[in-house]
């Protein structure tokens, strides 16, 4: 399919899907950029900021596709929507820890590793499926993103496995982070209310199939590092795909749009 051959119902479903994926990358990239200068060592600061930059680039690609579908300029999409118009999963908007990125940040590296690793695995599954998307511009974007995503996945996997099999303190902190992320990670694994239309048009695989791939992977990974499998990933704080969000998103968006919103009409 191309832009011209989409039926209205398909187009609406495609737009929903693009918001979900664009917002996931946009918000998690923001949380990553807050870590700048605070990572465990300088080499990691370099690597992590590169990953965050790539993810911002991926969000940008999805927003451009939305722009092409008549959703307005990508910059307005990124900077001027209200929190209830965002479709990212709730766990991705959560703050990195107490404090702010400029003042007294008490950020939790275990949470960063777990959240990013879990997300990278899902993103890989999603991209594998999108390569065969019926919407050709999306399939093309996915192929572009995959070349970078492969490295992100490796990066977080190394961190995850290392810390999960190291000192008792590290294992304790990592398990606490796994438990925390598990409570809401179900929100990443869903396609939201337009799920049936999204799947029917073959934009992406069925969410149940992709979810199974993710849980299979984690049953194996957790076994490998000697941790218990916590059962079905949950969605305790609601579904971000429905526009349900926490105050953490509000705070993120007001930072992200602070300058742009002062004058969206001018050149910056």
């Amino acid at each position: 399919m191309t832009q011209e051959t989409l039926k209205p119902q398909e187009k609406a479903a495609l737009i929903e899907l693009l918001y979900q994926m664009g917002d996931d990358d946009f918000i998690l990239s923001f949380r990553g950029s807050e870590w700048l200068g605070l990572a465990p060592h300088i080499e990691e600061d370099v690597a992590f900021s590169s990953i965050s930059q790539d993810m911002m680039g991926h969000a940008n690609l999805y927003y451009r596709l939305l722009e092409d579908l008549g959703e307005g300029e990508a910059d307005r999409i990124a900077h001027l929507r209200t929190p209830d118009q965002f479709r990212n999963a709730i766990i991705l908007e959560e703050v990195n820890g107490p404090g702010t990125y400029l003042k007294e940040p008490e950020y939790d590296w275990a949470f960063a590793v777990v959240r990013n690793y879990f997300y990278a695995v899902h993103k890989q599954i999603r991209l594998d499926s999108l390569r065969h998307s019926s919407y050709e511009p999306l399939a093309e974007a996915a192929r572009k993103i995959m070349t970078e995503q492969y490295y992100h996945l490796m990066h977080w996997e190394v961190w995850f496995k290392q810390l999960m099999t190291s000192t008792d303190e590290a294992i304790g902190r990592m398990n606490a982070a796994v438990e925390k992320v598990w409570r809401d990670f179900g929100g990443v694994l869903t396609l939201g209310p337009s799920y049936a239309d999204i799947v029917k048009a073959n934009f992406i695989d069925d969410e149940a199939v992709m979810k199974k791939r993710w849980t299979n992977k984690f049953e194996a990974v957790l076994k490998e590092v000697g941790a218990a499998y916590p059962g079905e990933p949950r969605m305790e704080r609601g579904n971000g795909r429905n526009g349900v969000h926490t105050d953490d998103l509000k705070q993120a968006l007001s930072t992200l749009s602070e300058v742009y919103a002062t004058n969206p009409a001018t050149g910056w």
Binding site: N60, H79, L256, W268
Partner: peptide
């Protein structure tokens, strides 16, 4: 520049300043 990474006023500027601060960390390394 850290403060201005997320606040950069367009997607293009966000990407550019992210690339820049990453370079600076790389120089440090």
């Amino acid at each position: 520049e850290k403060e201005w990474v997320p606040k950069a006023p367009s997607l293009h500027r966000k990407l550019a300043i992210m690339a820049k601060v990453q370079d600076e960390m790389g120089h440090g390394q």
